[in-house]
């Protein structure tokens, strides 16, 4: 009984503070965002309007695109139609880093490579160049022929351990030259880029600049931020030929940029596909994910690499070469290193 009586002020304290707490929670506005078709379309447009980094390079009138596509959006329209319209609007940017991903569909721009010869056929390489006596270490596939090393790395999304990287570098360190094949490598983790690039850098080196958005305006950017790499634990400093094609994109494009300035490195094949930015991901109110360029990557000379990096020696693979199982890009590289 005592406790009940004494509990009166205590109860008041509890009630009072509880009301305060509940009020605070409401003030914070943690309610789920509106996720109807119009809201989601507007959200995507606004998000990209404020944070997409390449309007200046792409020369797209984003306001005009909004007016053009917004008319087609109606409340309650089916998801697949909404997806289609939003995807079409994104494609006007012609940016391989721009994508729309729903639970059942993905759309992105691929004309940076799909309109050009592939210049890469891994099946032919397996059958006629690697054979059965190649080695692997993590994602690296490699072989040594006549004291020339060949390494294929298919994706910078494929992570490797330090041990796997060091084993590969150690094994090829006996060679007098290296062919590093990163054709059709569509990018991935910049950490993997840095770790591999450091195996070819002998001194601390400025490899690029990054410009980041500093405000919502299309041209609001920070000053370029320099990006340096230091030499890795094991270094391969002999002649290297990097094989590239139009599908070498994003992180792969960065890797080519990093190595292209080295005196012992040459680029053979077709130009890279570009993707000179770091993409940002954003989840819309309906759970769909968008991806878009959020920075501008510049070379050490402060030039954009969005439209790709040119090779030192341009070589293409013809239909006849491919049907004969020949890869002239590898052949020419091999001869150059020999």
């Amino acid at each position: 009984m005592k406790c009940i009586i004494a509990g009166k002020p205590v109860s008041l304290l509890f009630i009072g503070l509880s009301i305060v707490l509940l009020s605070c929670e409401k003030v914070l506005d943690m309610s789920p965002p509106e996720n109807g078709a119009v809201a989601v379309f507007d959200e995507m447009w606004q998000e990209m309007d404020r944070r997409y980094s390449l309007f200046g390079i792409k020369q797209v009138d984003w306001d005009a695109e909004y007016l053009k596509y917004r008319d087609r959006i109606t409340a309650g329209m089916p998801d697949n139609e909404l997806f289609q319209i939003m995807s079409e609007m994104q494609q006007t940017l012609k940016d391989g880093h721009v994508a729309l991903i729903s639970g059942v569909d993905t759309s992105g721009y691929d004309s940076f490579y799909s309109l050009y010869p592939t210049n890469f056929n891994y099946r032919n390489i397996q059958a006629n160049y690697l054979g059965s006596d190649y080695k692997t270490s993590g994602p690296f596939v490699y072989k040594i022929v006549d004291n020339i090393g060949y390494v294929h790395y298919s994706s910078f999304n494929s992570t490797y351990t330090d041990i796997e990287l060091e084993k590969m570098i150690e094994d090829i360190s006996v060679t007098k030259g290296l062919i590093l094949d990163i054709r059709s490598n569509t990018g991935g983790s910049s950490l993997n880029v840095d770790r591999l690039a450091k195996c070819f850098i002998t001194d601390r080196k400025l490899v690029k600049y990054e410009k980041r958005k500093s405000g919502p305006g299309h041209l609001d950017f920070s000053d370029p931020v320099p990006y340096y790499l230091h030499p890795g634990k094991l270094i391969y400093s002999k002649p290297v030929i990097v094989l590239t094609n139009r599908t070498c994109f994003s992180a792969c494009n960065d890797f080519v940029l990093y190595l292209s300035a080295l005196p012992n490195v040459q680029l053979y094949g077709d130009q890279t596909g570009g993707g000179g930015s770091i993409p940002n991901n954003y989840i819309l109110a309906n759970g769909w994910k968008i991806q878009y360029s959020s920075t501008i990557t510049l070379s050490p000379e402060k030039e954009s690499i969005e439209n790709g990096i040119q090779p030192d020696v341009r070589i293409t693979i013809s239909g006849l070469d491919e049907s004969r199982g020949i890869d002239p890009i590898i052949d020419r590289s091999f001869l150059a290193l020999k």
Partner: peptide, 20 residues
């Protein structure tokens, strides 16, 4: 961070870090 953290470079050996 200015934007989401980018993969830091050189964090392992005290070099530059690209995490504005």
């Amino acid at each position: 961070p200015v934007t989401g953290i980018n993969t830091p470079a050189e964090t392992g050996n005290g070099g530059d870090v690209n995490t504005e």
